[in-house]
Simulated assay, not measured.
Amino acid sequence: MMDQNFVLIVAAGKGSRMQSDLPKQYLLLHNKPVLMHTIEQFYASKTQPQIIVALHPEMEGFWESLCQEYQFHIPHAITYGGSSRFQTVKKGIAYIKNLQLQSDHCAIAVHDAARPLIAIETIDAAFEKVKEGKAVVVAKQSTDSVRLTTANKSEAIDRNIVWLVQTPQIFEASLLERAYQQEEEVTFTDDASVVEKLGNFIEIVQGHYTNIKITYPEDIEIAQFYLKKLKY
């Protein structure tokens, strides 16, 4: 059983693909910033992890002004992002370790700020898996046909064995800390790939198609549609 649970919400990116001067986590979704929706989902879960938000250091004042403007009072701590996602998560782990010196019974979830529609039930199910000693990712099964290509060939793959990885990704804290002591590699595209490099098996918790990552401008419209469908 985990004595303490944390979620590190990674919000330090600049959202260069959004064709906007404002990073995507601050864009409005149903009349309030995306990041606020994301925080609300974890706060509403039965697990209720302590919420840590990793911001770009230049955006802290802006975020504080948004919290005042939208009267957003959900408790959360702030840490600063690094030069890459890997470095941001590494700094977040160090911050949590300073809060929780005994990490043997502590779970850390890492979640993309730009996934505001993560289901509360999925959050709780993933944390429950970690209690069983699992390293967990939320993912959904592919519904598209899939092909694997190399320089010399292109071949179809059974889509039933293909999973599209989402967040949160949740790990026992000391395991995640050990994983992030490795040197950063280009193959580390998410936290699971970092943990897997140590030889750990990654368990999948079924996610949902609505748990989209807002990346392009049209994703805001899609998220708006899903949000109305899910909540109203």
Results as ranks from 00 to 15, higher is better:
G82H: 08
Y80D: 00
E58H: 12
K153I: 03
A109V: 05
Q71C: 12
N98R: 11
I52K: 01
H105F: 15
K140Y: 10
D158Y: 04
C67G: 00
P57H: 04
A94M: 11
E128Y: 07
A54S: 15
I96M: 14
A94F: 10
G133T: 15
F127S: 08
A139V: 00
F86A: 09
I108Q: 09
Q100F: 06
Q100A: 14
K131W: 13
M59F: 02
F72R: 02
I51Q: 06
Q141L: 06
T149W: 04
I120E: 13
A119M: 13
L55V: 01
A119C: 13
T88K: 00
E60S: 00
P75M: 09
W63M: 06
I78Y: 00
E128K: 12
P57Y: 09
T149Q: 10
G92Y: 06
M59S: 08
T79L: 02
S145P: 10
N152P: 05
E69M: 04
C67R: 09
K90N: 09
V138W: 01
E60Q: 02
C106R: 04
Y70T: 06
A113L: 03
L117M: 13
V136P: 08
A119L: 14
D158E: 15
P116E: 00
T149K: 08
T88R: 02
S103E: 14
I123F: 13
V136K: 05
L101P: 05
L66F: 05
V89Q: 07
G81N: 05
K140S: 03
A54I: 04
E60T: 06
A114W: 02
A126Y: 12
H73M: 08
Q102A: 15
D144S: 13
K97L: 10
Q48I: 11
G133K: 11
T122N: 15
F127Q: 06
V130R: 11
S154Y: 01
L148E: 00
I108K: 05
Y80Q: 10
I52T: 07
A151V: 01
V110E: 02
L148Y: 03
Q141A: 07
I96N: 15
I108E: 12
A109G: 13
K131R: 15
A125V: 08
A113D: 06
S83M: 06
I74V: 15
Q141H: 08
L148P: 01
D158K: 06
L101M: 10
Y80P: 00
L55Q: 00
E58N: 11
C106H: 11
E58A: 14
S65T: 05
V146I: 14
G92I: 10
A107P: 07
V110W: 03
I118D: 03
K134A: 14
Q141G: 12
